[in-house]
Design a protein around this nucleic acid. Structure first.
Lengths: 203, 203
DNA sequence: ATATTTGTTAACCAAAGGGTTAAACTAAAT
DNA sequence: ATTTAGTTTAACCCTTTGGTTAACAAATAT
């Protein structure tokens, strides 16, 4: 990592908090640890963000905002489903490879605090599936795709992209490979997943 | 010590702890809450399980042991891959529908404490992929299946089965459906997922 | 230059939470 | 009836932890 000389205290805190929250979760994170990680006094956390809860929400929203547009993008492009899936899975998996803790962080906390999704919904906005669903339906009717519901296809795409990152330790243990080979497996998935999906749905 | 003598208190604790740990995770769970849930004194938790850590491990191991055999089964049957996938996805998804908090619990804690998987490995045992991989390779060579690696197929199967349960709140919000319709969607997946996979890999 | 606002620190506080203890209760064994 | 071993409870302990305060420094305005 490159140190930004003009790093403000606030951004130092956000970076540190992000690091700690992603690894430990809301409950496991300690304010002192975040302060240490940022190299500042613990009171500063409360000076900039009144409470742990508010600091957490700031981090979470920022994190989610970096994640959601990737998903929204696929839904609003005008290319055929097949192209959409290829570019989406490639970009999505590439992105997650660079932020491996992100999916776990997001899902863990969404599960912990279900009202949180409502805040996200109004403050950041969630992807809208309508266009994607219509497009799938149209291509099914045209005979380009085998029958499948847009919702199910969407879930399948996300599942295949994200799942291996949520379960790294377990998969590594079961498949019995080291980090290097696991990363190779993930690299492969950038194209493998698209092939898998398209094989399945192409008429 | 005879187990059957007074299983009530111990099993009350385990049940209560299971409930609380699954919803709150290790860090979020409170011993007092577990005690209240079990309707007993907090000191009893320490009397039966010395510490929170040990109580947690007892619960986790028990939970994992109820989960792993489902996965191990698929790998050691002798039926063709296609049959195996159909019966596995159906049973697996049916099982998870009845234990919806289970996947989140397991993955959350495996991610929190990576050494834990080693304990599991030696005390309960993990599924072995070798047989499954060989079978996939054989069917690919015979031209029954399109080329795919056993590891990737295995990951895909688990991903499609488990993912919707890990991300319920988010998916519900994005797809914009209520619980009843989400459950219908999950029901559909008992057969949909197998079709999706088999469409993809069948030569 | 001086006042005022903003940023930072060390020391402190109260509550929470995991864990302990000693006494009391129960039921079986002697 | 008394002992004994196992079980249960209320009260307590002590460390951790989120949060506060008051004094101090640095920057900004007057």
């Amino acid at each position: 990592m490159i140190k930004t000389k003009d790093a403000t205290t606030e951004s130092l805190i956000l970076e540190a908090a992000n690091k700690v929250f992603q690894r430990k979760g809301m409950d496991g994170a300690r304010m002192q640890v975040i302060a240490d990680e940022a190299g500042i006094n613990k009171a500063m956390l409360h000076y900039y963000f009144r409470s742990k809860q508010q600091l957490f929400e700031a981090v979470f929203k920022k994190t989610f905002a970096s994640f959601a547009p990737q998903i929204i993008k696929i839904l609003n492009e005008d290319s055929p489903i097949e192209d959409k899936i290829r570019s989406f899975t490639f970009n999505h998996i590439s992105f997650i490879i660079q932020h491996p803790y992100l999916p776990n962080f997001i899902f863990q906390e969404l599960n912990r605090n279900t009202e949180f999704i409502l805040i996200i919904k109004e403050e950041i906005g969630l992807p809208n599936l309508d266009k994607f669903k219509k497009q799938v339906q149209k291509e099914v009717e045209e005979g380009v795709l085998k029958p499948i519901k847009g919702e199910q296809l969407f879930i399948n795409i996300l599942a295949l992209n994200i799942f291996p990152f949520l379960t790294g330790p377990l998969i590594k243990a079961v498949v019995d490979i080291d980090d290097i080979n696991y990363n190779k497996l993930l690299e492969e998935r950038k194209t493998e997943v698209a092939n898998f999906i398209i094989n399945s749905i192409k008429a």
